[in-house]
Structure formats: C-alpha cells, structure tokens
Amino acid sequence: MYTQALDTHGKEPAGSTEAEPRAAHFQARVDAEEKIEPKDWMPEAYRQTLIRQISQHAHSEIVGMLPEGNWISRAPTLKRKAVLIAKVQDEGGHGMYLYSAAETLGISRAQMLEQLLSGAAKYSSIFNYPTLTWADVGAIGWLVDGAAIMNQIPICRCSYGPYARAMVRICKEESFHQRQGFEIMLTLTQGTRAQRAMAQDALNRWWWPSLMMFGPSDADSKHTAQSMRWKIKRFSNDELRQKFIDITVPQAHFLGLTIPDDELHWDEASQHYHVGPIEWSEFYAVLKGNGPCNRERLEARQRAHEAGRWVREAAAAHAERERSRSASQAAGEAA
C-alpha cells in the first residue's frame, strides 16, 4: 500500500557531473527499455533518487500496517479478522521486499530503519489519518489501496530491475486488498441505515486524502521530468489521479454513496470526471508532521522497535553460539 508520488519531496539530487560517455551510455540503455541492475554503472543522482523513493515506499508499507492493525482485535467477524490479519501481514511483506530492493543500491537496512525511527524519513501521509470506525478499514482497502495500485502498476516497468520486480510481486497482492475493502463497503451499504451512514462517513473522510496520494499537481511537482527521463516514473501525478477518479466515481455510485465534492460532474467534452479544487494546504501540513496521527505513528514504530530488542539480541546470541559450536566441532574433527 503506497503512496503519493513520494519522489516529489526531499532534497533535489545534485545534477549529474558524471563522466559523459558513461552517462550517455546509461541513458541509451534506459531509453531502449533495458533494465538497470545493481552492479551496473548508474549516475549518482539516479541512485540517490531511487534510494529515497524506494525507502520511503518501504516505510509507507510498514507505517501503513498501523491504521488497519488498529482494527484487528475489533473486526466484526472471525472471517473479517482473518482477512485483515492477512492484509496487514502483506503490508509488512511489501515493506520487506522494498527494503531489500533499496539495499541493492548501497544503503543498509539499519540506516533506513534509523531514518524512519528518528523521524527523518518521509512516508505516505495518508497513514497519518486515524481509522475511527470499521468502515474506515473498507475505505482504506477500496480507496487507499486502489490509489496505490494506480501508482504502482507503472512502477512494475521501472528502469531499475530490483524495484520493478518487487513491484510486480506487490501489485499481485494489492488486488486482494482493494477487493476486500470494496466488499466491506458493499456489505455496509446493504446493511442498516446506521451502517450506510458509517460507510458514507468513511468515504467523506478518505476521499480527499486519497486523491492527494498522487502527489502535488503537475505544475508543482519538481522531480517529474527527471524521473520520467530515467523511466522511474511513467505518468504524471495528475494523469494518475484523473484515472483513479474516473474508475472510482462509478464504484461509489454503485455503492449508493455520495462523493463529498459539490463540483464533481461528468465532463462530456473531455470524457473525464471533473473534481473541485484539492485543499493542498492540508497535504503540506500533514507532510510537515502536523497530521492527526503523525506523532502516534512514529511513537508506535519506536515502541515496537524497543519491545522487539530482546528478541533480536537473543537470536543474534543464539546464532553466535551455534557458530562457535560448529567451529570448535570442526576443529576437533580436524585434530
């Protein structure tokens, strides 16, 4: 589950000062749709851009476990509970695939973890919103994972091999996430008046943040051109956002829910849904750390890290003992 064109913030990498022939050869390979692999030469700015994007993507998966994990113990049925556990476990798995992909670029797992726990790293700001009701679990699967899929499918063709391969695996799994979310919404909208109201309330709160997941509008998106040239990114933020709107609005209509936007209408001329202006000040406020749950999310990760310390230490001590045992055994046999 990801994301908001996470490549749109953070420091701009320094322009390429690499030796020209190698850089030209690299760009020619990218242009020819060849995949770049870890040991291949690559411009330093390409490497840094990918490290930033992949690690932020990984952090998003890990932090993304929290809002939904919040409902595991309160899922309405055993089936829903089993499904939610499986989904949250998938998010953890996605984080693992992505951390591994980032590590191939030369950053260590420990460094990335440190960046997340210190608050230095960014993650998708959608996860800084609270999950107040069960319907939020449905809305997240349907809208947040839906937006994530829209963002992630083009990354399956990213020029960097390990990232593209991780993305293929992730996209296969996301489809289950989105469908289980929609099914929760469907069940609620076919339920009592109170359940329908709960579903509508969840849509009201998650609609706009979901649209913001695609990142700032193209006019304000500073990294897009370079990322497109490197084929890390294939479509602009606004293009992906519009695609998401166009497929999601009819789904909301099917559910009998109202999109919380007075300006929303089908535009015959462009053959797209037109939406009202997005409140970008909210997006930037959440990004800066002032969302409803920024502190809570970070503290939860820090607590989990501390609480797991003894397990990691015990496993390391056990591995060390086994190693010295087999070493002394081997020495004994040799003697």
Partner: peptide
C-alpha cells in the same frame, strides 16, 4: 526471488 536478513540460516 529476493533477499532478507536473518541471524542464521534456519531463521
């Protein structure tokens, strides 16, 4: 298929 960190081979 990918990689991961572990204390030892069994883990």
């Amino acid at each position: 298929v990918g990689s991961l960190h572990a204390a030892d081979a069994r883990m």
